[in-house]
Design a protein around this nucleic acid. Structure first.
Lengths: 120, 120, 120, 120
DNA sequence: GTGGTCTAGACCACT
DNA sequence: GTGGTCTAGACCACG
C-alpha cells in the first residue's frame, strides 16, 4: 500500500493532515502506538526522513509523544486532542470564507451552490 | 497603496485571485483597460516580474487580451467571463469538500459550525 | 570562518542558540536580513539542509519571517523579541535550579561557590 | 513506586543524577548496599538494561564497588565522594555560565533575576 | 529495534 | 538567487 499525493502540496503536510484526520475521525485512538518511522515510510512510499519530519511536527503540535526507544504514541491528553479538532475545524471554515470573499462571491451564492450540489 | 499578502500563498496567485475577484464582483468590467504592468506593480508593491506573470496567466486563462501598443483589456467575451465565474466557484467548493474529508470531518458537522458561526 | 560545536548537543540547536543569542545581545537587529541559507551554511561549516532546518525552527518560534524570494529577516515584532528574551532567561534559571535540586545541593551552597568563583 | 523522567534527557543520566544526588544529600551513605539491578529497575520502572548501564557508569566513576556475589556498594572512599561532590558542583556552575554566555545574557542580569525570583 | 541527526545532492517555485 | 522539499544513505544514542 502506498499513498497518492497531490502534486501541489508538500508530501509531509499531506501526511500530517492524514494522521490528524485519522485522529479526528477516531481511526487513531489516544495512547495508541503509531507505526515506527521506517515502517510508516515504507507503507506510505516515502523516504524515512520525510516521515521523520512528519513525526517531529506532530510532536511539536503536542499530539504525539515519543517514548525513547519504544516508539511514538498518540498523546493521552484528551483535551489537547479536542482542541486540535476545533482548531482544524475553525481554520478550515476561516480559509473557506476568506477565499469566498477574495474571489468576490457572496456566502449566499456559495451556500446555494453547495446544497444544489448535494441533491442534483 | 500597497497590498497585504498572505505569507503562505504565492503572491502572483493572490494577485490573480484579486483581479478575478474584482471581475466576479463587478468592480472590473468587460472591455475595461487594466493599468500597465509597471503601474500595477508599483501600486501593489510587488516586483514588475511578478506582475508580468500575473498578466500573462490572466491572458492564458482567456480573461484579458493585449492590444499591442494600447495595453491590456478585460475580454468582452461575456461567455468566457461567466464560465470563469462558474469554474472558480466549483473549484472553491471542491477544495473545501476535499479538505473536509481529508481532515476527517463530516459535511454535516462543518455545515452546522458554519451556520452557528453566522448567528452567535 | 567555521564554528566550533559541542559534540553532545545537536548542531542545529547550537546554531539556534547562537542566533537567538545574537538577537538577545543586540548583534542582530529587528528587521535585519539574515545571510541566505547557503551562505550561512558555508560560514558555519555545516550542510545547507542543517541550516535550512535552523531557519525553519526560528520561523516557527516567530522570531524570523521569510520574504519569498528575498530571504529571511528578523521579525520587527519587538514584543515577540522581548518575550523571547524573557522566555530564554526564565528557562535558563529554571533548568539551573532544577539541576541543583536533582543533584542534592542547596541554592545557598551554589550561590556561595559562584561568588567565590568570580573573586578568586 | 516508579519515577518520573524528563523526556529530553536520557533516562540513565537522570538515574545517575538521582543516585549521586542521594549521595550528596546524604540519603545514601558510604559503604551502604544498593538494591540489585533488577530490584532497582522494577522500582524505577525502567528496563533492566538501562539500570545495568547506570550501575556500570557509577562504578566507572569510582562511586560504587561491586563485591562479587554480594551486590553493589557505595564506596567507603570518602575522598572520592568529596571529590565527586566538587566535580558535580563545578560542572553545574560551568554549564550554567556557558549557557548564559551562549544565549547572550550577562551574569549580572541573570543574578538579578534570580534574587528577584526568590523574594517576589 | 526505536527515534534523531547530519550530509550530499537534486529539483522546484517564487521573486 | 531565495527558501522549500525530497531522496538516499550513514551514523548515533537509547532502551
Amino acid at each position: 500500500m502506498s499513498f497518492d499525493f497531490l502534486p501541489d502540496k508538500p508530501i509531509y503536510q499531506q501526511l500530517i493532515d492524514r494522521i490528524t484526520g485519522d485522529l479526528i475521525r477516531g481511526a487513531l485512538q489516544p495512547g495508541e502506538k503509531l507505526p515506527s518511522v521506517r515502517e510508516y515510510a515504507v507503507e506510505a512510499g516515502v523516504n524515512a526522513n520525510t516521515m521523520q519530519r512528519v513525526y517531529k511536527e506532530l510532536e511539536g503540535m503536542g499530539i504525539t509523544e515519543t517514548k525513547r526507544g519504544q516508539g511514538t504514541f498518540v498523546t493521552e491528553n484528551a483535551e489537547r486532542l479536542g482542541q486540535l479538532r476545533e482548531e482544524k475545524k475553525a481554520q478550515l471554515i476561516d480559509d473557506f470564507i476568506r477565499n469566498i470573499e477574495a474571489l468576490g462571491f457572496t456566502e449566499e451564492e456559495i451556500a446555494e451552490s453547495m446544497t444544489r450540489r448535494r441533491q442534483p
